[in-house]
Design a protein around this nucleic acid. Structure first.
Lengths: 345, 345
DNA sequence: GCTAGGAATGTAACCGGTTACAGTACAGGA
DNA sequence: TCCTGTACTGTAACCGGTTACATTCCTAGC
């Protein structure tokens, strides 16, 4: 492990100069700089990150706070891999790495009322590691815990959770617009009894999708019927039972907009169980465009989210805050209606 | 940010004593220890990780090397989330965090012949960050690059790639046993013309699954036919074309073992395209038990891998190497045949 | 010829812990 | 009473960078 002092000695300069070459090259004369760079390259020197973080009081790491909903251990984020990939590549081009934070509570049983293991523990960890910023990924439903992070003063960007603060922002899909487009599509196909299975209460994207559903109905000139709105929780089973409830109405819907693909699949299964054919008897549209959407039979028409875009946008917002100190506006990524077979277009 | 010196001052002891309380509590008298612990708790003190890493020459972080196969950007690891979750919780209970390494090359175009962006860059990064160990996740096919890590002397554990060295080991499923069980299951159902669609050449799990396929045939007293082995690449399309090739034989198979669920789904589609009914005309078994397996129609019988087990086992092996210096034997996780509808049990 | 001012570099004090080594206090044994 | 060993604790030198401030050297301006 070669150090800056050795480089300095070999080049006949002081450590300070070596350090400057790596941090503010403009303040070093061209000849000295080139000499130091050459020797550093030959000896494969690169500054020790621990020492650098200690001295600068800031590391080149961004923390990632991510837990699954412990009340639903089977749940998986619909597109974590794309998100991570996008984050990683955008951050790396600016020299940052991603530190997956974990509290010691992770391995233990959790307090059933709280989503995150222990926000305080995470915040203390960000200080200990001198993290440059934080990416918060919604773990399921109750995300109020995230405000603790926004209050820590550290640059924070949340995914799919509204977060505000002087150095906090968030990125989400334009859920309302996507949902409205889906509903208009159904209306254009001639449906006038369009129901929805929503996400859980208190979840921001879920609320926005419901709002978009209502807006879509209004734009299509259709009345909103309270009995056509059933509450789900994004999981498949809730789509199944929700659909069953809807089909039990005396005047059942001919089309349904599910606020997640998982629930849409549940709805598909419920329709099949009820002896209905999709799309002939019932049209179904989902939201997310996860992998299974194209694999179920019939293939699911769905509102696709810009998955890698989340990572890139989150990284961009974070880097801006790390540099500029000012929180950018929340990012609202456009969605795209992917038409497949489940609504018989 | 309260420091150890402040705690020391408040307790009327030296910094060394405070440090000892956190690192070798047994060497401090009970009264002093309790006093320091109390004050530290009250002031929410915890040692700065940068300083600690610098001084100890070792951080409490484990690096994660993970790239997708850039030649197949659409490819996703079949169970990265479970893996990460398992890793994270096992590591956190020992105070370690996971650092997702990224080289600056990540954001740029890649050299088409190389799997990892730049192994050298990663190795240098591990030194810079004083990482305690490394987890290597197979990014697709050519994993020879990983040996560079094993040679670095750092504790390394690879997932699904055979890796050896004084401080390197790996974890993988018992692929051969799983495949053999699948084949025996098909044979027990009366099939005597069982084909396989393999994974890519040079991939260790793929080779083991093919070996298990042959062993299963032998155990069932069936002859191995060379024309019943077609090479795929784990992706869905290769399952589709592989199946089509198999069905074009004059004496086509009545059952097929696909070395991945993705390829099994491709085989399902090819069978459907050829007008065959599954499982009546063709039995299909996959490998992995990814989420879609239970969603396709018919639901896929498949060899399930112990997904969270990978994370736990990897963390366990890594922690052992970090402590003991000696590399544990490679871990071979048991698989489990999940019987669904695609082979008409 | 003298000086102001800028550019380049060096000096040394940090950042916040860890730990080898030295020192002190007190018990028990001779 | 003196000596020795054990149990604790303190002192200070690291770990490897960054950076405020001081210093040196030149050049341009008067």
């Amino acid at each position: 492990m070669v150090t800056a002092r050795e480089i300095a000695q070999l080049c006949g300069v002081s450590v300070a100069t070596v350090s400057r070459v790596f941090n503010r090259p403009a303040t070093v004369s061209a000849t000295t700089r080139e000499n130091v760079e050459r020797v550093a390259r030959e000896l494969d020197f690169s500054p020790n990150e621990s020492a650098r973080a200690l001295s600068r009081q800031r590391s080149a790491m961004v923390g990632l706070v991510w837990d699954t909903d412990h009340r639903r251990p089977g749940w998986r984020h619909p597109f974590l891999q794309d998100l991570l990939l996008g984050l990683k590549s955008a951050l790396s081009s600016h020299g940052y790495h991603l530190l997956m934070l974990a509290t010691s509570d992770d391995a233990r049983d959790r307090n059933p009322g709280v989503s995150l293991a222990d926000p305080i523990a995470y915040v203390s960890m960000t200080r200990r590691h001198h993290l440059a910023g934080l990416v918060l990924i919604d773990s399921g439903t109750d995300a109020e815990a995230f405000t603790a992070f926004a209050q820590s003063g550290l640059p924070c960007v949340a995914v799919d959770v509204a977060l505000s603060g002087p150095r906090a922002t968030y990125v989400t899909s334009d859920n309302a617009a996507g949902a409205a487009e889906a509903v208009r599509h159904l209306a254009a196909l001639g449906h006038d009894r369009i129901a929805t299975i929503t996400g859980p209460r208190g979840n921001a994207p879920a609320a926005a999708r419901t709002e978009g559903y209502l807006r879509g109905l209004a734009e299509a000139g259709l009345p909103a019927r309270e009995d056509f709105v059933v509450t789900g929780d994004f999981y498949r089973e809730s789509g199944f039972v929700g659909m069953r409830r809807l089909l039990a109405r005396k005047d059942p819907p001919t089309a349904v907009f599910a606020a997640s693909d998982e629930m849409a699949v549940g709805a598909l299964l419920a329709a099949r169980a009820a002896g209905l054919r999709v799309p002939a008897d019932l049209a179904v549209v989902g939201f997310d465009d996860i992998e299974v959407a194209s694999l179920v039979d019939p293939a699911l028409t769905t509102v696709a989210q810009d998955k890698p875009g989340f990572g890139t946008a989150a990284a961009g917002a974070l880097l801006a805050m790390i540099d500029n100190q000012e929180a950018p506006e929340p990012v609202r990524l456009p969605t795209k209606l992917v038409i497949r077979d489940s609504c018989g277009a």
